[in-house]
Nucleic acid binder design. Structure first.
Lengths: 226, 226
DNA sequence: CTCAAAATGTATAATATTTAGCATTTGATC
DNA sequence: GATCAAATGCTAAATATTATACATTTTGAG
């Protein structure tokens, strides 16, 4: 954790301002109210999406009403890039959390710019590779860490991809599914994190009280060796 | 699983033949005997590596002798791409499995070709995004599936990234760490998979008896809803 | 071929986690 | 501000998993 420190700059911030502007010029800004479906698993139409405001939850809706969150994305983060390069349907459901605005860019418009501007592929690769790295860390946490540590680390990771937001809007049951534990076990872990004042448990939300302290706690308790 | 079917073509196979040739022309072919360290976590020198023959295990060596495998890579698969775009040290240890030859390409040589040939960024993005997808599936398996199913799915995934190899060279204890369970639990799962003749348990290896049957079994038992 | 080291096989007690149930709190709506 | 659905809080029995221990098998070195 101390050895390799991840840059949390979202995709949009990695582009040179001129290119970012040009890319957004090709987009349509779409508004969503709280909890609306932005994309559905299986959908075929390819395109890139970028969060303008609000937040998006990426995950998979189970038939039984469960929702397993894979990531919570804040301002400047992108999603849908998988559809641009693979000719495959969407792998995840994406929903808006709160009032949310998303830039939607069709594959054809994206492609025209991609050919001209090498900075786009570099930014996208950096974003994707960073996410791969985060996923590997998450995977590692899931394998190695007890529930308490796993919970803390997941909360920290989500807080990063959400940008500067100071609370995570999520139900305990959904968070529990995302962590691969039951609600009972998660509640126990959350209570413990709340008791040392790293977080505050709300109704349908988790408030981050002190992100730096949380980061330190995670580093101390979840490190590998370095 | 049936909805979204992943293309297992390795990185090298995604490049137009001319570009692949040119890229390998910039590389140095390095030989490794069984179990040699190819890269170490924390190493700073950036560069791309491509498996020419043999196989490479990517993971993290614990101080206590444990090794958590993140992936097993066969012919044509690449690794180290993270170092090309992030200016960060390597996040994983990579070891050779059996007699292995690796094409090593320095960052500077890679960059010169990257600028000229857009097909490289496309291939790399496709590879990386596919891996992200595989990681998300693995993550999902780890959260949702019981040990037996998780074991089968992981074995199948590894068999894909290994190419046409018909056995996975790995100790049960390492595989157990990779699955986040104890050796005892893994042994139980392996025994069950062996009893229905999907695999064969060897000494320091798992043999794939019928990859298609394994794929069908995984699809039947590990699917989401589609 | 023999032997030692390494890896797998297996049993049992201890522990962590889940399941299932009901109680309590919260927030939105009328 | 009363009411109801949704979400969280909590408990105890049932279950899965781990830790620990030791036996057995396999491989490779001499």
């Amino acid at each position: 954790m101390s050895l390799i420190d991840i840059d949390a700059t979202p995709f949009l911030g990695l582009l040179p301002p001129r290119v970012a502007e040009e890319l957004l010029g090709l987009s349509v800004l779409v508004k969503y109210s709280n909890g609306q479906l932005i994309h559905t698993r299986g959908e075929l139409k390819p395109g890139l999406s970028i969060v303008h405001s609000g937040a998006a939850h990426v995950g998979v809706n189970g038939i039984d009403g469960t929702f397993v969150t894979a990531a919570a994305l804040g301002q400047g983060e992108c999603f849908g890039e998988f559809t641009l390069f693979t000719d495959l349907p969407r792998t995840h459901d994406v929903s808006s959390i709160g009032e949310t605005q998303i830039y939607q860019i069709s594959k054809s418009k994206f492609d025209s710019l991609y050919e001209r501007e090498a900075s786009i592929s570099r930014a996208l690769l950096k974003t994707t590779l960073t996410r791969t790295h985060i996923l590997l860390e998450t995977l590692d946490a899931l394998r190695r860490l007890p529930i308490l540590e796993r919970t803390a680390k997941t909360l920290l990771t989500m807080s990063y991809t959400l940008g500067r937001a100071d609370s995570l809007i999520i139900k305990q049951i959904d968070l529990a599914y995302s962590l691969g534990v039951t609600r009972v076990s998660l509640a126990k872990a959350l209570k413990q994190l709340a008791s040392i004042e790293l977080i505050e448990i709300g109704y349908g939300r988790i408030n981050f009280l002190d992100r730096d302290a949380l980061a330190r706690w995670v580093q101390q308790h979840c490190g590998i060796s370095d």
